[in-house]
Computed example of a mutant assay.
Amino acid sequence: MATLLHIDASARAGRSGIDRHGSHTRRLSARFVDRWRLVRPDDTVLYRDVGRSPPRPVTEDWITAAFTPPDRRQPWMHEALAESDELVAEVTAADILVIGAPMYNFGMPAPLKAWIDNIVRVGVTFGFDRRREGVPYWPMLAPGKRLVILGSRGDHGYDPGGRIAHLNLVETGLSVPFAYIGLTRVDAIATEYDEFADERLAASLNAAETAIDRLADRIGVDG
């Protein structure tokens, strides 16, 4: 059996197609998880909604605590890192991470960035030794994990090779820090044309859902 960690990051509470002004990424991430359950009904699914319950952003106290060796941390330092410890434990336990990541002003929502900042931690998810020859950093997550990014964009042409692909900072903003801590197997699917709200959006949603079903089936069977 495997463990799937499902993350939603949209500021919208509902799902498009069900709720008025609902979130496309919540719709897509739920679609993936529902399909996954069909393929692998015995797997564990963890859920965290950072869009509705944002993690605390990194503070000076957090930094001080994170860079203090564990055996020298004072009680307030453990408290400062308690939420981060919980978030890291979820990622560590997961074999596959499914993230609903809408595009806000070309990048990810602030709560999702706060979540990333809480799980990329020296000595916990990545190692650092300035005396190490070559690159002084190395990933610490167990190998073999997968990342699935499910996005939504107002405009169109953000996919690789598209007319404004260079403006898409969502997939890069997620895949780069995750690769840094050891998660390099990444798939990304997104819907576009949200601002147009016409048949192009409907077609894009349909294509994304079809791709999600195929991806869930393939990963669920092949791993």
Rank of each mutant, 00 (worst) to 15 (best):
D217I: 14
T3G: 10
A2E: 12
D19M: 15
P160G: 05
L141K: 11
G173I: 01
Y104H: 06
I212Y: 01
D159F: 09
L97M: 07
A190I: 05
L201Y: 05
F196Y: 02
G182L: 12
V33I: 15
M1W: 05
R40F: 08
D71C: 09
A13H: 04
I7T: 00
L174P: 05
F196E: 11
E171H: 06
V98W: 02
W115N: 09
L112R: 03
I219A: 02
L38F: 08
I63T: 14
R130M: 12
G151H: 04
G157R: 04
Y193N: 01
I99C: 02
T210K: 11
D187W: 11
E195V: 10
A93T: 09
E192F: 03
A208R: 04
V186Q: 13
R26F: 10
G154F: 08
G100E: 01
G154D: 11
P143D: 13
P69Q: 03
P54Y: 05
R20Q: 12
A203T: 07
S10I: 00
G151N: 07
P143N: 11
D129H: 07
I219P: 02
R200Y: 12
P70A: 03
D43N: 10
F178Q: 03
V88T: 09
N206Y: 12
F128A: 08
R15P: 14
H78R: 00
I189W: 10
L38H: 15
F32T: 03
V186R: 13
W62F: 14
D71Y: 09
R56F: 14
D85A: 10
R163Q: 00
A66R: 04
Q74D: 00
D129A: 01
E83N: 00
V120F: 08
E133V: 00
I99H: 01
H156E: 06
A114W: 08
V221L: 15
R153S: 02
A165V: 14
R31W: 07
D213S: 13
D117N: 03
W138I: 07
G134Y: 15
W115G: 01
D198A: 07
M108C: 00
A179P: 14
N105L: 06
G17S: 08
T184H: 10
S84K: 04
A2N: 15
E192H: 11
T25G: 07
H21Y: 13
I99Y: 01
E199D: 14
V124R: 04
D217W: 13
V39K: 13
S152E: 08
F106C: 06
D34I: 02
V148C: 00
G100H: 07
R146A: 00
P143G: 13
D8K: 13
I63E: 14
A93Y: 04
A110V: 09
V33Y: 11
L81N: 00
R37G: 02
M103N: 11
Y158D: 07
A82V: 02
G100D: 11
G161P: 11
A11V: 03
T3V: 03
A142R: 15
H21L: 08
G173L: 02
P111C: 05
R52T: 13
T59H: 03
P69D: 10
A13E: 08
D187L: 14
P111Q: 13
G157V: 04
G14N: 09
N206H: 08
R52D: 07
Y137H: 10
M77I: 01
K145L: 02
